[in-house]
Design a protein around this nucleic acid. Structure first.
Lengths: 204, 204
DNA sequence: GAGAACTTGCACACACGCGTGCAAGTTCTT
DNA sequence: AAGAACTTGCACGCGTGTGTGCAAGTTCTC
């Protein structure tokens, strides 16, 4: 009565589709299904054996990315806001490959439910960290916290986009320092904080 | 023998197409020709009386934007690099409406000849200002100047994107301060520089 | 007002991308 | 080995957007 579980290679193919999809959609959100399928080593027709529509595939890709983001952020221990902010950047960076598309979509296109839902906790936390930092005068106070938050979000994305171009060595560090700078923290202070976070990161 | 000059209303319509095109393409680079024509108060068919193809229209829109950018930057008097940088941001901001689409295209899509050509002088100047500033230790020196330049470019765009959301009052100021922050200048220092530029701007 | 310039609306051909049906394969599973 | 699961390739129909031709307007210019 119970239907037999799906074949092993089918699961592999589905996986390949999600990976190829993330990669292709990262470059072009309108990438044709044909290309995604080809990148996954499948025919366009076969995709419909795994997803009912192109949109369903895209949603699945996004959902997976969102999932990883949430996991990456995870528990953020109690610490001063700027350190927390830097750590958030570092964590996000570590999940970067899977996250890239999602993060961009979340900001640029007004993507529907999935992304917004998954990103909201991070947004909230970012907002909280920033207003806490603003109270302490640790970040710029000449503009509303809301604006700072928007700029910091984009700064995080910018690091991702720029990363490929420059050598990848300093990218993870940039993921910590640049959002801080975008919030108005001076470069040397940002570097100091990054060092601090790096140390505690190494300890764990 | 000499063909009579084009009709006056035709020129007006062409103009309307360029304006509507800039507006429509700013929102969606793939906006259908039909929409652009309608926004300009014309039929889709009429467009082909002014431009041989959709792409030609897009190119014309971009070319005009690039032109305005170049004009906006214009002569940048001799002054310390950070002041110059802030002024550059302010000038760009003043040309924002026409420039928005072009600036984004220049960075995101690897748009063909036109944009790259028009943007290059600005890029070059930005590069020069930043390396000059880096030598003086005025900006962060822990990453290559090339990377800083890329991040500052994006920071400038980010201000444009975020501007609509927040109140427009502080946007122009953000156009000066945020790129500075992205370069590693602390918020208070950035504000000081912006004030300085504002004063000399008012004097002129 | 006459004629040219411009616009319109319709027609069509073309290209691209999605979603589906079906027959003929290939590959896993038991 | 047998059968189910999965994939393939081809066939469509559908929708959308571009570029073109042409006849019938409308609007400017002289």
């Amino acid at each position: 009565m119970t239907p037999r579980s799906p074949r092993a290679d089918s699961a592999r193919n589905r996986e390949a589709l999600l990976i190829a999809g993330a990669e292709a959609l990262r470059r072009d959100i309108d990438a044709p299904l044909e290309d995604i399928a080809a990148a996954a080593g499948l025919s366009r027709r076969a995709v419909y054996g795994h997803f009912p529509s192109r949109e369903a595939l895209v949603d699945a890709v996004i959902a997976r990315g969102a999932e990883r983001i949430a996991a990456a952020v995870g528990p953020l221990n109690e610490e001063p806001p700027l350190e927390a902010l830097a750590r958030l950047g570092a964590r996000l960076w570590d999940a970067v490959v899977d996250v890239h598309a999602v993060a961009r979509m979340a900001l640029t296109s007004g993507r529907t439910s999935t992304v917004a839902y998954a990103m909201n906790p991070i947004r909230r936390r970012l907002r909280a960290l920033l207003s806490q930092a603003a109270e302490g005068g640790l970040v710029r106070t000449d503009i509303p916290v809301t604006t700072i938050a928007a700029l910091v979000e984009r700064a995080a994305i910018d690091v991702l986009e720029v990363a490929d171009a420059s050598e990848p060595g300093c990218s993870r560090r940039l993921a910590m320092t640049h959002p801080l700078c975008a919030a108005g923290v001076g470069a040397v202070e940002a570097a100091r904080i990054a060092d601090l976070v790096d140390q505690t990161e190494a300890a764990a």
